[in-house]
Write a protein that binds this DNA or RNA. Structure first.
Length: 291
DNA sequence: CACTTGACCTGTCCGC
DNA sequence: TGCGGACAGGTCAAGT
């Protein structure tokens, strides 16, 4: 669920909420979620302050003053939720989607010197938190293997076509989900971009006309920008750094609209399975390209 | 190398 | 009401 727009929203929130705060301690459960032990984690981050929070693909990077950086991947059900010192005690913000913290999915708590806290919750335990030296990030395989950022100027038509063409015999949907081709797209925005471009997700990349691929690239950028404006998509678990939902799904054309009328032709949206994923389409508006 | 599938988890929903 | 099974979907290892 957290894809590029959701992760971007969390990062923007954290930049407002935790920059310049100093860590006093960390507390974690579920060792599987972490690359270092609680003891090590405490040794390496205590008394460090937060320099900045950035994003690469779907990875959240928290740069610390100690020369280390915390990397967080939310996978499907991860959340990074900030609670200010005024929320200490019984109450919690009434407009938050989640209640009292910690709860049973809390895996990590970062305590700041002003008594505010950052919670990492993850129901399904797929997410992770890793600690690296900031100077090592540039050569880290986790990061260097990632494809281009779709919202950066370097993401040109030419680069998009070159990268998707590496997998010319695959379904276009599977290729959009491949983070080495381009980074940040997940199931929701793959379905939305393919609908907006009028392409059936099971079209093979090699069968799609170049002009249509260019249009798809344009639709990817547009849908990601729109979703960031809406604070991302909340289907079930996703919340921003303040525990609030995103509203992109109010604008969705196909995702989670099975059985509802297509916004263009009114025929019902159909759900199929493509590349092992639930896939939402309008069979009338999306053309299946084939040889 | 290109490409596909299943495993990792837990909570929820659907049919019987 | 309870119970089994399918499903949710990001990534990677293992398969063809």
């Amino acid at each position: 669920m957290p894809e590029l727009p959701e992760v971007e929203t969390v990062v923007r929130g954290l930049n407002r909420l935790i920059v310049d705060k100093t860590i006093t301690s960390v507390d974690c459960s579920n060792q599987k979620s972490f690359s270092v032990s609680k003891t090590e984690l405490n040794q390496l981050v205590i008394n460090a302050s937060v320099n900045s929070v950035v994003r690469r693909a779907k990875i959240i990077i928290i740069h610390l003053s100690s020369g280390y950086s915390l990397l967080v991947h939310l996978k499907m059900t991860g959340q990074l939720v900030f609670r200010g010192s005024e929320d200490w005690g019984a109450g919690h913000p009434s407009d938050s989607l989640i209640g009292e913290l910690p709860d049973k999915s809390t895996r990590l708590i970062i305590y700041f010197s002003d008594f505010s806290k950052l919670y990492f919750n993850d129901q399904r335990k797929f997410g992770w938190v890793k600690l690296f030296k900031t100077s090592e990030l540039a050569t880290l395989n986790t990061i260097t293997k990632l494809g281009p950022e779709p919202l950066e100027p370097k993401f040109t038509d030419k680069l998009f076509i070159k990268n998707v063409s590496r997998r010319s015999k695959s379904n276009i949907k599977a290729v959009l989900l491949d983070q080495t081709v381009l980074s940040g797209i997940g199931n929701i925005y793959a379905d939305e971009a393919l609908f907006n471009a009028g392409i059936h997700p099971e079209s093979k990349v090699g069968d799609i006309p170049i002009e249509k691929l260019k249009q798809l690239k344009k639709e990817i950028v547009k849908v990601l920008q729109l979703s960031i404006e809406q604070g991302g998509s909340t289907n079930k678990n996703y919340v921003n750094a303040e525990g609030k939902r995103g509203s992109y799904l109010d604008f969705a054309n196909v995702y989670a609209r099975t059985g509802l009328g297509c916004n263009i032709c009114s025929r019902p949206i159909v759900k199929i399975r493509t590349a092992g994923r639930g896939t939402h389409i309008c069979t009338n508006c999306q053309k299946r390209y084939s040889r």
